[in-house]
Design a protein around this nucleic acid. Structure first.
Lengths: 212, 212
DNA sequence: TTATAAATACGTAATTTACTTAGTTTTAGA
DNA sequence: TCTAAAACTAAGTAAATTACGTATTTATAA
């Protein structure tokens, strides 16, 4: 078996320890670093590039989704394997689009994780079984297409985030240095994109997207 | 050091592995079981009672809060140490009220965890440092008298539920056969009770109360 | 029986939202 | 590099919602 170097990025020490424990029995897998936040991750990458990076989506200082995009661009040789609790297809798509080679859920077991690592190492894509099923269902049943695959622009997402923080339109306008009307327009556009009837839908969406 | 037996309940294998890894270096700590769901936990307890139980709040089949209450009642000798991501005071209070001996956050480190285990084993209460600070702040600053302390009337709760279901005030009025103005009054009263600035707070509250 | 809380209801003013149209700046692709 | 599309910005007007004060009728507990 070819040796594989692995980097870990997760804000929970417990999870890092768990990963180490799961992988420690395999001699061909070696962990070269474990970062507890986005910044530390970027610093570690400057020093040593792993073959595979296990990347959590929720990090204290920056979004794993953004990190993924940046790392895929700056270090294309690194295979990124998303490792997270979020099983919503929205996140999966977002990560894959941003260059992730695979998507693993945190309730995974040892064999699955090692398998996933080896798959992405070989250049294949790896998706968690449950995730695959969800995506399939969504496709075939054409179920809820709306909410999740709607792409909000950066600005819209920013404003949705502030709405979720209980900012009034006026406060949003002030904090972004734009006109109240512009905020209203953005908000309305978001509502339309999400097919939202009122604020409640927006807040629910904000929850789904981890803005709350 | 006195030997301590430990049970683990967490739906993430990774976290279980992490805990095991963190505790394995200590000879006086022995893990007697690790359950991945509430049912399995209850079964394990029938076989072997640990001194300390590390209990996650989020479980696939049942709520850790309910589990805590049940276990504290059925097995009062077991010291329950909540181990979770939820740092909201609502959960902390709920767990402590339901018989938990301590509350630990998942971003904990090895020393803290072992310390917490030993504290609750000795009959003391253990609260995560950050949690302690939050609770203190809440008390001293009298900030938000914290969700659950506010008592909503049956009607108010009913209306909050409908708001959360994206009903407009008009629709609520129709479905409850009351005047629009009455709905408005109820909504306003709820907002006041919750110290809510706008709909967003209401929806968040609805989430907290499990109405969504 | 009498306070007390809950549910009901309205008037008015202020704020927010819906819908439309449109100018300017970025971004991405040919 | 140039151009078309997308994103961001902004506003007019009408409709809906919300804030706040006030008030009546039930239940309910002291």
């Amino acid at each position: 078996m070819i040796p594989i170097t692995i980097g870990i990025a997760d804000d929970h020490l417990l999870v890092i320890q768990g990963i180490k424990a799961m992988l420690s029995k395999k001699n061909h897998l070696s962990i070269v670093f474990a970062a507890e936040n986005g910044n530390s991750l970027l610093n570690n990458l400057k020093i040593a590039l792993p073959d595979v990076l296990l990347l959590d989506i929720q990090m204290p200082d920056m979004s794993g989704i953004d990190l993924c995009q940046q790392i895929a661009k700056d270090y294309p040789s690194v295979k990124i394997l998303a490792l997270t609790n979020m099983d919503e297809s929205f996140y999966v798509k977002q990560m894959i689009r941003n260059g992730a080679a695979g998507y693993l859920l945190k309730n995974t077991d040892q064999l699955t994780m090692i398998n996933a690592i080896e798959e992405v190492m070989m250049g294949n894509q790896y998706l968690d079984k449950q995730i695959q099923k969800n995506l399939m269902d969504e496709m075939l049943l054409g179920k809820k297409r709306s909410a999740q695959q709607v792409v909000l622009t950066k600005r819209e997402l920013e404003i949705l985030g502030l709405i979720a923080k209980e900012f009034t339109n006026h406060e949003i306008a002030e904090s972004l240095f734009i006109s109240l009307r512009t905020v209203q327009t953005h908000r309305l556009n978001i509502s339309h994109k999400l097919n939202a009837k009122n604020m409640v839908s927006l807040v629910k969406e904000a929850y789904k997207r981890g803005l709350i």
